[in-house]
Nucleic acid binder design. Structure first.
Lengths: 217, 217
DNA sequence: TTTTTCAGTCAACACATGTTCACAAATATT
DNA sequence: AATATTTGTGAACATGTGTTGACTGAAAAA
């Protein structure tokens, strides 16, 4: 922390411009339109930089988008790792996972908002990339579930089905939560409880599955 | 079916322009960008009409959007009615509902695509409107579920929770299906089966619910 | 220190956008 | 048949857009 305050008049902002552009875009997405309807000039203006400076860091807007996606994914994966490694007793497991997950969402609101909007509204490449990531998430969850004693004899396909059900539900609730006001504590808490209940309900169904519904139609 | 072929040179297209604009927008949304990044001129061009003609039918683009939303909702409600009124025996019920639902999705692809993209990517008013419609859907499903013999003693809140779980899951699968190619028969069928399985799984959980998980934490 | 590379500015362009206005054709009303 | 109203057209505007090129100060490498 040595030389700040860049001389007044010409401000160098020594390298942070790239990040400033990304943050600006994220901000705009969070409180305005989807990324696809963001203009280059809009982003640079918010970043406090002249339009042409953009090209020093990204060839075009879609490149910025992909970088943003990458940054968001890093957050997501880190969260996933944290959720998976905390081995809790069966009863507390669901609650614990949901808590750390939603905490992550709150602490990385703009990232999740960005991903949420791009999941269906973004370009084809974006949507594909996000879906791939989600599928990965589903597979890992399925692997974890395979270790449950009462699921040892469920085939891989059904495990995948169950995991995707859990993930889809949590994703939906996450998107609903993002719709809430940022500091609506009560609403957020309500969402957490709802999420826990729903996942628990699914696990009830899962526990029942092996016996009855073996063969597909 | 009297006077077609509009005289060549000046074409009258006697009133159909409004619908042409709506269809054009829907088309563009289906095979290109989200609605918010559509330009007025783009839409009019695709509708085969001069930009200024737009104002004869809508004050601005967002009005077009709301009209489109309304049109899509009519489709949705009609589908809902049809699903609800077919009282099938318990075993066939889930399968039957899913089949008519997904048939509707296929037959109104552009509408569902539009709604799907607007759900998270659209303007605040749009998102709210769609969410309201979904909540309505959830409430009706909860009412239907309340009549199940094994659910009579589940409280209203939990019924709502279960219904929202079902709806969220089906919505997610619908969006996944819309990502598929339009004439990927195999993929669509697969989605249908997956949907049925997931809903059935949820119902297993539901059947188990009443006994164990009464009180919230 | 000198030189090279990096990261910002400024001016300018060609083009797409939303919107206006006055006008004309098609249709509806009388 | 005469008139009024709706619906589409054309020209024109101010503004916002992506992108170019030449230039310049700051930081890094020599």
């Amino acid at each position: 922390m040595s030389r700040e305050t860049p001389a007044r008049g010409r401000r160098p902002k020594r390298g942070r411009t790239r990040q400033a552009l990304m943050d600006a875009a994220l901000d705009l997405v969070a409180k305005k339109a989807p990324f696809s309807s963001l203009s280059l000039r809009e982003v640079t203006k918010r970043a406090g930089v002249v339009p042409t400076a953009f090209y020093r860091h990204f060839p075009d807007m879609s490149a910025l988008g992909l970088t943003l996606l990458d940054e968001s994914f890093r957050t997501l994966r880190q969260m996933m790792r944290e959720v998976r490694q905390q081995e809790l007793p069966n009863e507390r497991m669901i609650r614990g996972s949901m808590e750390t997950f939603f905490t992550y969402v709150r602490n990385n609101r703009t990232h999740f908002l960005f991903v949420s909007k791009e999941l269906y509204g973004g370009s084809a490449t974006m949507r594909q990339a996000i879906r791939r990531e989600i599928r990965l998430f589903v597979s890992e969850l399925a692997m974890d579930m395979a270790r449950f004693p009462f699921l040892v004899q469920v085939n891989a396909e059904d495990l995948q089905m169950m995991a995707s059900l859990v993930v889809n539900s949590v994703v939906a609730l996450t998107q609903e939560m993002l719709e809430l006001d940022e500091d609506d504590e009560a609403g957020q808490q309500e969402m957490l409880i709802l999420a826990e209940k729903q996942v628990r309900l699914i696990y009830f169904g899962v526990a029942q599955w092996r016996s009855e519904a073996g063969a597909p139609a």
